[in-house]
């Protein structure tokens, strides 16, 4: 392993902004997408109940 301290890990050899900017946005969108679908599903289920 090439990291000796946690700070070194977050610094990413000076590329921290770019590396974490990439992984951060990737993680965020992949968390938000299923939440949005859940929301859409709940709405769909509610509409079925209203129409019944």
């Amino acid at each position: 392993m090439q990291w000796h301290t946690i700070n070194e890990f977050f610094a990413m050899g000076g590329y921290g902004l770019y590396v974490w900017g990439s992984f951060g946005v990737c993680a965020l969108t992949m968390i938000v997408e299923p939440i949005l679908i859940r929301h859409r599903r709940k709405n769909a289920l509610r509409n079925i109940c209203i129409n019944d």
Binding site: M12, G13, Y15, V19, S22
Partner: peptide, 20 residues
């Protein structure tokens, strides 16, 4: 992040490859 070595040319910046 923990096993792949540092790249000779691009340092740690290349790790974006794992999602790019």
């Amino acid at each position: 992040f923990f096993i792949a070595p540092t790249d000779a040319q691009q340092g740690e910046g290349y790790r974006i490859i794992f999602i790019h």
